[in-house]
Design a protein around this nucleic acid. Sequence first.
DNA 1: ACAGGGGCAAGTTGG
DNA 2: TTGCCCCTGT
Length: 777
Amino acid sequence: MVEPAPLPRPAGGPITSQLNRQVPDYLRGLNPEQKDAVMTTEGPLLVLAGAGTGKTRVLTTRIAHILNQRMAWESQILAVTFTNKAASEMKKRIHEFVPNFEGLPWMGTFHSVSARILRAHAELVDLKPQFTILDTDDQIRLIKQLLAADNIDEKRWPARQFANMLDGWKNRGWLPKDVPASESGYFANGKGGQLYYDYQARLKTLNATDFGDLLLECIRLFLENPEVLAEYHRKFKYMLVDEYQDSNTAQYLWLRLLAQGKPAPEANICVVGDDDQSIYGWRGAEVDNILRFEKDFPGAKVIKLERNYRSTANILKAASTLIAFNEDRLGKTLHTDIAEAGETISFTQVYDSEEEARTVGEEIEQYQRAGEPLNSMAILVRASFQMRELEERFITLGLNYRVVGGPRFYERKEIRDALAYLRLVAQPADDLAFERIINVPKRGLGDTTVKTLMETARHQNVSLLSATRMLTETEELKPKQRTTLRGLVDQFDNWAYRAENLAPYQLVEQILEESGYMDMLAADKSAESQGRKENLKELSRSMEEFESLGGFLEHISLVMDRDSAEASDAVTIMTLHSAKGLEFNTVFLTGWEEGTFPSQRSMDENGRAGLEEERRLAYVGITRGRKRVRISAAQNRRIHGLWQSAMPSRFVDELPPDAVTVTDRGSAYGGYGYGGGATSRFNKADPFESLYETPGWQRARANQANRKGGGPMTIEGELVARSVDLGGQSSGYTVGERVFHLKFGYGDVKSVEGNKLTIEFEKAGMKKVLESFVQKG
DNA sequence: ACAGGGGCAAGTTGG
DNA sequence: TTGCCCCTGT
């Protein structure tokens, strides 16, 4: 991973010695716009910072400046980010300016700051201060219970779907009463709205919130208790927000409430963002928030950072030309002071995704031989299913790689199990944790037993653990189960007792041992069990710095990320989304095919807005590269196990021809070259009306008309070879159907044998082809 | 109570 | 293709 240039340390040592200097050291090396953004501390400020323009540096310097000039105490600054990673990066970099800096108490994610505020005033929103924060997994299990209780068919109305809807509502700042029937009515034939009420009621019973509630309940707290809000108005003198383009409506409301302590022209709020890098619309982010900042805060100053310190002129030109195809943007143009244009961007079309993986692998090795570290190279894909082929190829090559964004540490089963034990010790009312571990490891307590426990809990209106305690005193359960439960309850009492004096990391080790969890892993012969044991050790190690169990659980529910700064030299494979904010010398952008990127689904669901978000994703991808960007498209790709062909992405056509070099490896197989040029720009008035109207398809048609017979005979061999792994697939085509083939053009199906079709093509004559190579005509 | 097989769907991700 | 969920058989 490439570290940004280190910030200059203040030469004068402690802050006091720097007071009253005219130009503090930390301002040196900033360009005029950056300096302006740092020094404009009073009033609302919008910093539009393009990719690679030193956004983080401006934010951190600004905070350092405020502290240095003693404009505010640390506790009077509120700095919010979206990710823990961004927050810790900011803390680290401020520390470089201010050696005796002890950490800003109010610097963190929206969610962690909200949680902190909520714990201080929990009783005002019907919670107890030690409330649990549920993650997505808990949330879904809770919803499943509600669906079951309401006799809603979970197949027809999946819990996950409701969770997504719920998330969307909460992102928009809607409490149960605010959800319009037109939104909620759809789910489970009109029961959606009521489910939201029931869900919230369950959360209160569990003394829990989900992530969305951290913000929503905070907003409710402020609205219903003006004196509490006023307290924070007095408290925060300066507010800063990073990645403002990613904010959703709830976050927006939260911010406005906090920022409006003073009349708008005096609110010291600084938001930093880039509308061109807004790629989380599907998650509820509203680009509109950044677009209307000047209206929200009349008199706001706007500073654009357009000087890019990262990429070559060719890369910037490509990115700028591409993003200019978007209509919804504030409009910035990146430029650089570097005179050299650098390498041109390369675009390569290959036969299929396997060849793409092969080519990328070869090129990486080539650069590696030329002395480039693997750490400086990355492959960015649109969707994670594209990673597998790359990984397989790299394993074959023995090429060291690392995948970013796989299942995260805390999402692993064994970690979640261990956490469930700890949660139950800390909060005996945590029924979700109880359900998770009651029979893990296996104790012979099955559905029947759990059902009895749940019934008792509901009737007596107590937690599952209390219900268990009660049932060990009665004859309701079979003796075997009763004994087991008695033992379990005793264990939990014991652990809770020990939790008072024992360090959390010791407690977790003892729990895992005494519960039989370690024995279970030891007995497990599968390849994974060793890794699970190591993960649990890692968990215990990460707990060493925590003195109380409560403190650790708070941390884990909000952070739950393992920052694994792996030291070894490896190529990074990750999605475009997770690459935002990073940079690499060499970037490979694979899978630039219509349907894959831009994603068909995105366009179908969100039309032009969807397409524009995809384009911003392309922009993010290109601007990750410092020296070299290599784009590729495969003519054929296996999607969900079926081979499908596709045209190169329309985004390829939107790159400036003079900054791009085209290498067409696909041509040997009858592919077509890169059309390029202004003539093949796609029709902006109607960009997603039909896939077949895109320039790629137009070119393909023109090409197949010129080419007639298609490629050399090797294709046939290739096709036959492929039919092996497709054998037995039943055909989706019928005799007489009209189809379109990438190389042979239009034709009619003459016969069908499994997945092989005999087609009479208009231009190419009779051919046998696999159905996966044709499209319905 | 629990293991194994069949059916079905499949996106990007943060807290 | 894989992975998850449900159902069935022991």
